[in-house]
């Protein structure tokens, strides 16, 4: 239902040759899947997401959502940014931040929106923090507010740009599982960008490995592990280790080239 066809993105610096961030990226994502994109840092993963989200115009190629070309932020798709703390509104409480996801959209009244917002705040485990301000919360909690804000919209597709990258290992584990639980109950399609190979394999149905500039999809790896996943048992599963090994090899080769 989401298709990226030969996506290319160039940037023109102040002087010199254009920088090709994305060479020719192509892949498809089926409805309800959890798909990860891994690659070395700085190889255009964020740019890719921006293009898919309709926030950046590709130099060539197209993005198709349900067969229709994406030319601006499309209905039913939300991008969650890496700098989640900057994307939350410091002047709004947690409740109002989450409610923002519903404003200007549904025909709901203030009361209805608040109720809905509270549901999702509870869902992400932040019950009791509705009146707090984002900057009063820890990084992990802020990230959950951002997630709740996106979820309250019930998007079909969620694009997530290294959402857990700046969090400590323990918080990361907690949020990985929380995300999987949410995904399973809402059955949205998730496109998850990360530099953490283990995280990618742990979470996804499929992993796409991206090369460095100009970015291409080197390989698509199918992760045939049962769900629900478990931090201990899944990560010890030989198929997990095999997949991880394979991805790691690909990326090491990539990084050696650069």
């Amino acid at each position: 239902m989401l298709e990226v066809r030969e996506l290319r993105k160039e940037f023109q610096p102040l002087s010199g040759q254009p920088v090709v961030a994305l060479g020719s990226v192509s892949f498809r994502v089926e409805s309800g899947q959890f798909v990860s994109i891994v690659g070395p840092s700085g190889c255009g993963k964020s740019t890719l997401l921006l293009c898919i989200a309709g926030l950046s115009r590709p130099s060539a190629g197209r993005v198709l959502l349900h067969g229709r070309e994406v030319t601006g932020p499309p209905e039913g798709l939300i991008l969650l940014f890496q700098e989640y703390n900057k994307s939350l509104m410091a002047w709004r409480s947690v409740l109002r931040n989450v409610r923002f996801g519903l404003e200007n959209r549904s025909g709901m009244s203030r009361v209805e929106m608040d109720a809905e917002a509270r549901r999702y705040i509870e869902l992400v485990g932040l019950k009791g923090f509705e009146a707090h301000y984002p900057w009063e919360l820890s990084g992990g909690m802020q990230q959950r507010v951002a997630i709740a804000r996106a979820l309250v919209r019930r998007p079909e597709v969620m694009l997530m740009d290294e959402p857990f990258g700046s969090l400590d290992a323990l918080t990361r584990i907690e949020l990985e599982d929380a995300l999987l639980r949410l995904w399973e109950s809402l059955r949205a399609t998730i496109l998850f960008v990360t530099h953490d190979i283990e995280e990618a394999v742990y979470l996804s149905d499929r992993v796409y490995v991206l090369s460095c500039r100009p970015a291409l999809v080197i390989e698509e790896i199918e992760v045939k592990l049962e769900r629900p996943r478990n931090q201990l048992t899944t990560r010890e599963d030989p198929r997990f280790i095999q997949a991880r090994h394979h991805v790691f090899e690909l990326i090491s080769k990539e990084m050696a080239k650069g």
Binding site: L50, A53, L55, P73, E75, L77, I78, L79, F81, E83, K86, S87, M89, A90, W91, F100, G101, E103, N104, R105, R153
Partner: peptide
């Protein structure tokens, strides 16, 4: 105003007017 904030508003489908009034001005 941090561009991330503006992109956030756009990804939530805010029109230009709402973006200026609800996001840019408060920020």
């Amino acid at each position: 105003v941090d561009p991330v904030l503006i992109r956030t508003a756009r990804t939530f489908g805010l029109g230009q007017g709402a973006l200026l009034w609800k996001v840019v001005l408060p920020a």
